[in-house]
Design a protein around this nucleic acid. Structure first.
Lengths: 396, 396
DNA sequence: TGCACTTTGGCAACAGCGTTGCGAAAGTGG
DNA sequence: CCACTTTCGCAACGCTGTTGCCAAAGTGCA
């Protein structure tokens, strides 16, 4: 579990640099970016960038897009990511609904589905529903399986193949551009092993190996994570740089932490436990059994229709978090926030501003914003569990 | 400020692998470690390890130490770090005293000094005192400057030279093995620029460029950091692996966070602000102007001689931190802890155990221990600000 | 005592990485 | 039309870790 206690070799170096270049190409979007600009921003020499982008072009991930205006010499040729060269399915498994998206390499949502779901209906029913939605969405957007075209389409290359999952089996294995499927859901779980722990309110899920139940059935890699982590990862990939906290107000109250551009999961995927931070010693009893948790105080205030107090409670907890980690930004999301975004932003920002004023801080207070992505944010972030590693985000 | 947005080249790869090998050699201690064992633990091939250790031996950092027992073939040759090949000075600048240590490459303290000091005596006096103590300690332990031996001792190599600080100037520049000096002190400060901000209780230090005041005078690199960060770094280098929090109870109450083996400073060296976490909404007024801070509640309880309550307050704040970051270990240190270690350990551990019990946790509660290092821990950690980068710890 | 066997670790050749030197390509501007 | 600027690829290079091979240095059995 030590940070980077593993030796580097040439392959690792190439992967690192390739991911760096791909990430810049992705960020540049449809406008493209020139080789020299890539060189400046990575610190690599122009020649190294040429070699790397040459490989990417051979692999079909990148194409030349156009030319910049000349500044007195040969104009720069811009390069562009080929979005359809890679896809990932993202699934947001919530207590009462199932949102599924198909995301391309550029991070664009190219298809989405929504279905009602009862998390308490049992493992078989839920796993089947996820498989059905994912398969349906992929077929709808990417068309029928490539198998149906018998001509040996030997254009050489595909991102999704060769994952050693018994290729050929599984309903989605034939889609060459499909990297896999990410599933985001609430309860405590273990990202590394893909096993659930005590999904709150649904004891029958305790210990269920969700990843290993889905992967063989679909024939593509599956990654699972907490909903808050997925949303935070999605925001990080979408362009929020540095260190930030994503606070999710839905059925519960959780956080996703991105520290230095990297999602922080903790040793047991337990990081981000925000709702049960105690900010009122001997306060009201919470559903978790403890007293004075942020969640209990927040719910109590909301029950009294006292939105001001709820925002103050949330703000105090956020101020603790901001001070402890010295982060740059706070993003709010989740159903409850979507209902009255400005109120929560103002409430939380108010507490942080007062704190900064009181300390006579030399820095301006940490900004508070509503997270982009809306109700689909978690599903998109789930897809980024597979796309992120290509760009050097996450544990790939 | 993005994590690792910089391209890697062969030099970077070599540095990384060399640091990895050096770290394992350091950890192995005087017993030594064989080339094959290094290969297994780094994932490098034996031949690569042979090349790396060959360079280190040429540079005088490593020597062959002995042989292991044979297991049916040629016995493994063990390698050992040469501790005296590198040194660093660590300074703990506290409100009323100045502790200075000289640490060798293996992390052993080879000299220490303690002097009374008044942080309010003004910048000149304090800077002079630091310079005097450091210079005195180095001369005492390492002997008179190498300059005094005119014979061209061209054994080739030295860690400390060539730092581009106008070599030759400064009283310590002539010690080839001296990597530099680390200074740890309480107040808010900026690690990157080496500038102090509002050292609590001493407004005259606001904005003082401590690093740039010391470095030219001593002629060696100087790094400054918060006392809690230095102590945490020292513990990480000393062998505490994974993620942990170091809680320092001295004049104030602060924390140092090590996440995944790496010290987390935050964007403005502000991370670890623990004493002013609010855990009692509308609680008693704190010196910081806020209400219900851990520090205020703790001091209040201590004032009532209520050590139980103080430990419970500390435990509650610690439980918040542990849950938020999902860390593996809590270490306690500082003068107040040294006075009654067991009481604090039991108090904090009690809160964490109760929490785990209430949640019916599948994992055992996070362990709580007293930090090794005692009252010299901060000074040793300050020295590790310079030694750590050699072993891949920190921003070197 | 001798010989087969095991294990270590260095030498030499190698493949792959980014780097450097150089030149062709493709513009601008007088 | 030509000098100049800038981009970017080819070829040679230096350096990295890797592989194949072999000497060195032990153990264990006949």
């Amino acid at each position: 579990m030590k940070g980077s206690s593993v030796g580097a070799n040439l392959f690792a170096m190439r992967s690192h640099n390739t991911a760096l270049v791909l990430d810049l190409l992705r960020t540049a979007g449809p406008l493209g970016i020139s080789r020299l600009e890539l060189a400046e921003r990575t610190g690599l020499t122009p020649q190294a960038v040429s070699k790397i982008t040459g490989r990417l072009r051979e692999d079909g991930l990148v194409v030349e897009a156009g030319r910049r205006a000349s500044t007195g010499g040969k104009p720069r040729t811009t390069l562009q990511l080929v979005p359809e060269a890679g896809h990932a399915v993202g699934v947001h498994l919530d207590r009462d609904e199932l949102r599924t998206v198909l995301v391309d390499l550029a991070g664009a949502v190219v298809g989405e589905r929504r279905a009602a779901l009862d998390l308490g209906a049992g493992a078989d029913a839920v796993v089947s529903a996820v498989a059905r939605e994912a398969q349906g969405l992929v077929e709808e957007v990417l068309g029928p399986t490539a198998d149906s075209e018998p001509g040996s389409e030997d254009s050489g290359w595909s991102l999704g193949s060769g994952w050693g999952l018994g290729s050929g089996s599984g309903s989605l294995a034939a889609y060459g551009s499909l990297l896999g499927l990410g599933v985001a859901l609430p309860g405590p779980l273990d990202h590394a092993s893909g096993v659930l722990h005590r999904v709150t309110g649904f004891p029958e899920w305790d210990g269920f190996p969700l990843r290993d139940a889905l992967a063989p059935r679909l024939g593509v890699p599956v990654v699972i994570d907490k909903d808050t982590n997925a949303a935070a990862l999605g925001l990080a990939v979408a362009g929020e740089s540095g260190s930030f906290a994503y606070l999710h107000l839905g059925t519960g109250l959780g956080a996703g932490l991105v520290i230095g551009g990297v999602l922080h999961r903790g040793a047991r995927t337990g990081a981000g436990e925000f709702g049960h931070q105690v900010i009122q010693l001997d306060g009201p009893v919470c559903s978790c059994g403890n007293r004075g948790c942020i969640e209990a105080l927040c719910l109590q205030a909301m029950g009294r229709q006292d939105a001001e107090e709820a925002a103050r409670v949330l703000g105090t907890g956020t101020a603790n978090l901001v001070a402890l980690l010295d982060i740059d930004l706070v993003l709010l999301g989740g159903r409850t926030v979507e209902e009255a975004p400005e109120r929560f932003v103002r409430g939380v920002a108010g507490v942080l501003e007062e704190l900064a004023r009181r300390e006579g801080a030399t820095w301006s207070p940490v900004p508070v914003r509503v997270a982009s992505g809306g109700v689909w944010g978690v599903a998109v972030g789930a897809a980024q569990l597979l796309l992120g590693p290509l760009f050097g985000r996450g544990d790939g």
